[in-house]
Every structure is written in C-alpha cells, then in structure tokens.
Amino acid sequence: MTALESSSSTHAAGTNSLCPTRARSMSDKDFKRFAEFIHEECGIKLPPSKKTMLEARLQKRLRALGYGDYREYCEFLFTPEGMECELCNLIDQVTTNTTDFFREPKHFEYLYSTLLPKWMARQGAQRALNIWSAGCSIGAEPYTMACVLSDFKEKYSQFRFRILATDISNEVLGKAARGIYTQEQARGVPGNTLRKYFMRSKDRSKKLVRVAPEIRRQVEFRQLNFMESFKFREPKDIIFCRNVIIYFDKPTQAGLMKKFCANLKPGGYLFIGHSESLAGQSLPLEQVAPTIYRKS
C-alpha cells in the first residue's frame, strides 16, 4: 500500500468503512464535472458517450479509497488534499497508454536513412542530436529511437544523441524507466534488434524481456503535462508526438502545436501520427514526407 492509499483510506473511513464491490452509477452532473476538469487539466475531451468508460476506469480508485459512489469521490478530489494526493491517480486512470515498438515503421526508416545522414553532413560531431518523445507512454517509442540511433552510431562513431521522454502519467513513466515488457508487447521489434538490445528473463516461463542497460541509459524520463506552460532550455532537433493529439479538441491541438514549434529548432523535424493532421493550422512547418514536418 502506498502512502497515498494509506492516508486517503483514513480520510474515507468516516463515510465508508466497508469497500463496495461496485459503486452506484455516475450521474450526468458528476460526469460533466469530471469531464470539464479532465479537459482543463489534461486537454482530453470526454464526450457523453465516454461516460461508461470513465465509470469503469475510476472503479479502481473508488475501491482503493472506500467510496460508495462517484459523488463522494468527486467531492474528495476537489479538496486541497484530493488535489494534492489524488490528481495523479485520476490522470493515470483516464489516460490511454497503448503503444508498440517500431510503430509506424516508415518514420524510423526516414529517421535512419534520410534525417540522420543529413544531420551528420551538416553538424558532424559539433554537438549531440537533441530528440524528444512527447507522450511516451510505457517507453516503447523512446527505446525504439535509442535502438535506431545506436545502430546509426555504429556507422558514425562520432555521432552523439540525447533522448528526453515525457508523459503526464507517473505510473507509466515508472514502467517505462524499468524497461520490462512481455514478449507480446515487444512483438514489433525486429529479431536482430531484439537479440542485440534486449535481454530475456532467466525464468523463461515468464516470457519477459528487458531493454539492455546501454539503451536504457540513453533515455531520460520526465513528467510533463501539455496543458501547463513549458519551455525547454535548449530547443529540440526532433520531436515525436504521435497518436497523442487525437484525444484533444481542435483549439487544444492548435495551442499544443504552437508550443511544440516554440520548442523546436529552426530546421528541426516534427513527427505526428498517421491518423493525425495539421490541416488548417498556421504553423512555421513544411511537410517533407507523410506526417513528417520541418520547421522553416
């Protein structure tokens, strides 16, 4: 039990000494309150059709805290104690953390075959390539980057790089930092890359793999909420933000893209997901390949 669950369970014991197996249904009023708050804090838009999904995802927190209905949980969330202790748990429950290694492989082909050779021709060993995985989830994307960049470094020994990986959820960042995955989660990793950069569990019955230490050391994981104001000390050369903005409404998407452009070096590259579009947005970007943009 974490310190949060321990202290919060004490708070809840006054109203519910027994943990219910299932809370009463969420009222439309409470859903609206949750949805407005989640949109404000995370940028995620939850239409009324997502009410059942939200109920299911918050069940875990209600059981942990001993609440019998969503109203009680909602009232606790908006107390100073709730905002301090429970907000991160709410975010962990409502964010989607599905990702795959080498997802949308053409992006990594472009990175290795086109972008990196151009970088070496222009920069050489002058400085390290600075790359950001925005919305990294459980770490598959930044570790894929580290594998690809490490392969490139074998051809150009002077090549150096730094990878920052961020997510709003502290829970998934913890999983990402450990770098442990099921074989099913690692199914997208090519066989030679798997043998080269991953370690199999000594207990073969567990069917687990772990990212090798030399790859894990290449990635810095950090918590970041896109809805907050942020500005990196050094703008990035490459930003991957793929299959993230689809969860936001149009105004939020536009605001976020402006933040990304402000944190991208002139001549730097932005990669978005194939289900996403920047159409209609006035941004200092030119498209160089499908879902790949360069800052002009």
Rank of each mutant, 00 (worst) to 15 (best):
M1C: 10
A3C: 05
S8K: 00
H11C: 04
G14S: 14
N16D: 12
T21I: 10
R24K: 12
R24Q: 15
K29F: 11
I44K: 04
L46F: 15
P48W: 13
S49R: 11
K60A: 07
R61P: 04
A64M: 06
Y67E: 03
G68K: 14
D69V: 00
E72V: 01
T79G: 01
E81P: 01
M83P: 00
C85G: 10
D92W: 00
R103G: 09
S113Q: 13
L116V: 14
W119A: 12
M120F: 09
I131T: 05
W132A: 07
G139F: 09
Y143H: 01
Y143R: 01
D151P: 00
S157D: 08
F159C: 07
A165V: 05
D167E: 10
R178A: 08
I180D: 08
Q183H: 08
G188W: 15
P190A: 14
K202N: 14
L208W: 13
E214V: 03
R216Y: 06
F221Y: 15
F221D: 08
R222I: 01
M227Q: 13
D237G: 10
I238A: 01
P251M: 11
A254M: 10
M257A: 08
M257S: 01
K259F: 08
G267H: 12
S275Q: 10
P290R: 07
K295V: 06
